[in-house]
Simulated assay, not measured.
Amino acid sequence: MQRGLLVAVGAAVVLLVGSRARAQGVGETCAGAYEQAQQLVRDRALLRARAELRLCASSCPETLARDCKSWSEVVERDMPSVALSATSADGRAPGRVRVLLDGAPLVDALPSAPVEVDPGRHTLTFEDAAGTRVVAVVTLSPGDKALPIAVRFPAAPPPPPPPLPRAADAAAPARKRWPLVLVGAGAVALGVGAFLGVKGHVDRGELRSRCAPGCSAGEVEAIDVAWTAGAISAGVGFVAAGVGALLYFQLEPVVPAAPAPGSALLPDGAALSLRGAF
């Protein structure tokens, strides 16, 4: 009997302590939200103040909750909002655009409805899918509703011009032209030698069929001269073509000479700069 009484008393103490702890916890939540909301309203941090006022209205007694509800109406009245829009350089929609508020993400895509923002001076950064950014600085007063903030993205920069040919690159074709001429002349000489050799063989065959072995010395000598001239022409052509090809593939690019001393006017005309090698 005595043991059962002690158990009952212990259970009652536990319940009482738990109830007081819960009551004390609710009281601290209410007091914190009540005080914090007032400070945030004074600091014009209306977004955070609204969250604290909602917590106050749900956790405080009716007397304090009534104050929080009244302050909430003022916060909703003074809460500014902005209507965000953007266009590309040609006036079209720029696609997906995200917006940063004072360096922190605000929206990942342009919304159709206005976005609420605390009053004060803010920097809005619009960024398209290509990473191009446009910055707008605005000052919002309490009560500004759906203030239009429209930006236009600049046109993409033109591609850089192709690099100008270097002096060595420009001079290389001229330096390699005469070896090609030498190769061409050698090819012509080879052709002449081949023609004279073939002609000598044809003429010798004709003499054999017409007058051999009693052909005149002049006719035989003419064939020997053609063969000799053909051999010389072919030899000269072979050497010329070989030398030209060798020079063509072994020529080094010309190294541009150092510029002579001189002066140049800067693009803005502000000063003169001397250039040269001494």
Rank of each mutant, 00 (worst) to 15 (best):
D268W: 05
S70R: 12
R98G: 06
V9E: 11
L140H: 09
L164R: 13
A89R: 00
Y248S: 15
A231R: 10
A187W: 13
P142R: 03
E52C: 01
A189V: 09
D78Q: 07
C60Q: 00
A260T: 13
S273P: 08
E116G: 11
Q2L: 15
K199P: 03
F238T: 14
E62H: 02
C68Q: 05
T228K: 10
F278H: 07
A49H: 04
L265K: 15
A270Y: 01
P159N: 01
Q2F: 14
P161I: 02
G95A: 00
A33Y: 03
D169E: 15
A277H: 13
A240Y: 03
E52H: 06
A264S: 12
V236P: 02
V202H: 05
P105N: 06
G184D: 10
R152I: 10
Q24G: 00
V192N: 05
S81N: 03
G230Q: 01
D102M: 01
A222I: 05
L101I: 12
G200W: 04
C215S: 00
S88G: 13
T228N: 09
D224G: 07
A156L: 06
T63H: 02
F249S: 13
K176L: 09
L16D: 09
P61L: 04
A113V: 14
L140I: 06
L40D: 08
A277M: 11
L207M: 07
A31W: 04
L55F: 08
Q36L: 14
A65P: 10
R50S: 12
F278K: 03
C56N: 02
V254S: 13
F153D: 06
R208L: 13
A130S: 11
A234G: 11
R50Q: 14
V7G: 14
S59E: 11
A155G: 12
D144M: 14
R166G: 15
M79A: 07
R98A: 05
A21F: 05
A245L: 11
P142W: 01
M79I: 03
G237N: 08
I149A: 12
A83Y: 08
L16G: 13
V151P: 06
D128R: 08
L47R: 09
F238V: 06
L140M: 10
V117Q: 02
P114W: 03
R166M: 14
A89G: 05
K176H: 04
L251M: 08
A245P: 08
L84A: 10
V134S: 07
L110S: 00
G237H: 04
G262E: 05
A231H: 08
C60H: 03
T123L: 05
R98C: 00
C30E: 02
V82E: 07
V188G: 04
G269I: 10
G186R: 06
A245H: 09
W227E: 15
L110I: 00
A277T: 15
V188S: 05
T139P: 03
R177E: 14
A136I: 06
L265N: 12
G27M: 01
F278M: 07
A226I: 06
P253W: 04
Q38R: 11
L247G: 00
